[in-house]
Amino acid sequence: MRVLATGASGLLGSEVARLLIREGHTVTTLQRRPSGVEGAVDICGSVTDDEVVREAVRGVEGIIHLAAKVSFTGRAAEFDEVNVEGTRRLLRAAKEAGVRDVVFVSSPSVANSGAAIVGLGAALADPEHAHGDYSRTKAEAELLALAADAPGFRVAAVRPHIVWGPGDTQLVERVLQRAAHHRLPLLDAGAALIDTTYIDNAAWAIVAALHHLDRIHGRAVVVSNGEPRPVGELIAGICAAGGVPAPNWSVPGAVARGVGAIVERVWTWARRREEPPMTRFLAEQLSTAHWYDQRETRRLLGWTPSVTLDEGLARLAEHYGGHGPDADPAR
């Protein structure tokens, strides 16, 4: 199959592209900078550019759309332009080009209003109650994508939950850097039960979705390892793998959520580019249970995780060789 993968310069996008190539597919990637994926044909550009998008979808049979603006803060218009309008452009160009299959890579946050999630499935995306512009615009984009599902144009949404692994700068390296400098508290003693997804498992699930669109088109599924653990235990495992001390101090979750809301507004007002130390969404993720029933997902995708959390942590330790990211070891 001729497949376009957008956002292939990121951790998950590049792994998806590599997996597609290993399966024998012809892969084109579209992202702002070179993907670094051997065997892929790179198109450097943005999903906000109509001409670039039309070029990228030409001759393609399937699309896996991962490109997005991912940040805890930023101007709302930037999230709208990339996440919503970029998806709209891609869907329109794909239909015009005769593309048959589309997998939209979404996020569980599209249906998370901040309340605990305990063993649920994929609820309907809810932009009105999603917290933060990233979650709001991903929810709007998912609704757009699923509404486009039609005979001859199959569309499904896959929501990987907290993807991590070697080379991850979104979660792993932030945890390690902040823990190393004693700037990472546990919220409510790290007791909240959460699930996550090791990178290999997330990539396999997304590609499985492309192969099984006959079963899942028109709907969304949440993907995770299916191994809920207390967030404090997961953070301690990441710190041990990176060779830094785990945090041993705690802050009430309610306090962190209040502080995070203030920090978000200050960061956005000041147009600071670095990620803030705390946001309301981050505080919710660290202090509220969120794990999902995976039985329906596994049945629909014909997929089960191949790497357990403990195996993933062992791979992370091998990656760092006992040194945190600041040590800049040869990798």
Rank of each mutant, 00 (worst) to 15 (best):
V158C: 01
L90E: 00
G190N: 08
A191I: 12
E274F: 13
R280Q: 13
G152T: 06
R265K: 13
E264V: 13
E15R: 11
S287Y: 09
A202G: 04
A270G: 02
G167I: 12
V175R: 00
S46F: 12
H65F: 14
A97K: 01
A240K: 02
A283G: 07
T169M: 07
E233L: 05
S71Y: 09
G121V: 12
L313S: 06
A147N: 07
V263T: 12
D50K: 09
V27K: 02
E23D: 12
L213R: 01
P305A: 12
G260M: 11
G59V: 00
I235P: 01
G39S: 11
D214R: 06
T304P: 01
A261H: 08
E128Q: 08
V266T: 01
S107Y: 11
P252D: 03
L146P: 06
Y292I: 09
R22P: 05
E274Q: 10
A179H: 02
P127I: 14
V110Q: 03
T28G: 06
G165T: 12
I64T: 01
L171N: 03
Y320I: 00
R33Q: 14
W269E: 06
R178W: 13
G322M: 10
A8V: 02
E173M: 11
R183Y: 13
R315Q: 15
M278N: 03
S14Y: 14
R32Y: 14
V158E: 02
G39H: 12
P34Q: 06
G165H: 04
E61Y: 09
T196L: 15
R299M: 10
P127T: 06
G237R: 00
A111L: 07
H319A: 11
V16F: 13
D200E: 14
P228M: 06
D149A: 13
P127R: 03
E128L: 10
A76G: 04
E61D: 14
S109T: 13
G74N: 04
E15D: 10
T26Y: 09
L234W: 12
L234M: 10
W291Y: 15
A270K: 07
P305F: 13
M1Q: 04
D149P: 08
E85T: 15
I199K: 04
R272M: 15
F281S: 05
W269R: 12
E23F: 10
L210D: 04
R88N: 09
A246N: 00
W164D: 00
Q170T: 15
V175W: 05
